[in-house]
Simulated scan of single mutants.
Amino acid sequence: MAANRTRGQRAGLTRQAVLEAALRLVDQEGLKALSMRRLGAELGVEAMTLYHHVPNKTALLDGMIEQVVAEAVPTEFGAGTWRADLSAYAHALVAALDAHPHAAPLLLSRPALTPRNLRTLEAVVEMLHEAGFSLPRTLDVLYSLTSFAVGHAAAHAGRIDGAGSLASLDPEAYPLLVAAARESGEDAADARFAFALDALLSGFERELEGGPAEG
């Protein structure tokens, strides 16, 4: 006799499929469009079926962040130097958020401490600690880097980089601002991100070379 299965199992759904569908919906229509009822309709099931895979909407949102973070972890993560790994992670996180711009506010507003995300964080902390950073400093490095990357992605998604607006100002009233913006060019955001990321990583490196931090 076949074992009894829940409605969620009979629907052939998995947690992964639910999270991927939620992210697609938000990509297409924004966070305001996301509800358990609407997501169920997208998947062709009743909303209650989804609760077999995500217990509530909070868990659904956390799972969506997990999906984005998973896209941002390079396949070769942990194989290079700590600086190369962090640089690759920051660039990959920005790329993932560029692909899912409506997810940026989620990363800024909630920790999303799912088991999968926690394993990623544990791996980064281990890598940094083995490189010589104190345990408290590993979190400082991780959170400052992530906040920087997410903030850049959020600004890019909102088209609030500012250079384009500065370039259109009155050059007689603001000659230096206008000149700086125009010389930067229309596609300066990527170069600006690379410059700031390199400066951030160089700061981490200088501290590490100066000896282990206290704490």
Rank of each mutant, 00 (worst) to 15 (best):
S35N: 05
G164W: 05
E42Q: 13
G185Q: 13
T14N: 11
A181W: 00
Q9E: 15
G132N: 08
V124E: 12
V45Q: 05
R159P: 04
V68K: 05
E42N: 01
A95N: 06
G215C: 00
G8Y: 00
A70R: 10
N56I: 07
A88R: 15
G215T: 01
Q67P: 01
L34S: 06
Y51P: 00
Y143D: 08
A90K: 09
A95Q: 12
F193Q: 04
H156P: 00
P111Q: 11
R110W: 05
A84W: 01
S147F: 14
R137K: 10
N56T: 07
A167E: 07
L121D: 07
R206I: 05
R24Q: 13
F193R: 05
M1T: 12
L121T: 03
G203S: 13
L60T: 06
D85S: 10
A70S: 14
E71A: 08
A188T: 03
P74F: 07
A199H: 08
G44E: 06
L208K: 03
P136V: 08
H53P: 01
R116W: 01
P136L: 12
I160S: 15
A213C: 03
A131K: 02
G80N: 13
D140N: 09
H91D: 10
A72V: 03
Y51S: 09
A155V: 14
A22M: 04
R116E: 15
G12Y: 10
E46N: 15
E122L: 14
V141E: 04
V54Q: 02
L166D: 06
R7I: 11
L19Y: 04
A213T: 10
A179E: 15
T120E: 08
D62F: 02
R116G: 11
D140C: 10
S109K: 12
L50G: 04
E71P: 02
Q28S: 13
D27P: 00
S168N: 07
A72W: 01
L93W: 08
P74Q: 09
L60H: 03
A88L: 07
Q28N: 08
G78N: 09
A17Y: 02
Y89W: 15
G211K: 01
G151F: 05
S109L: 10
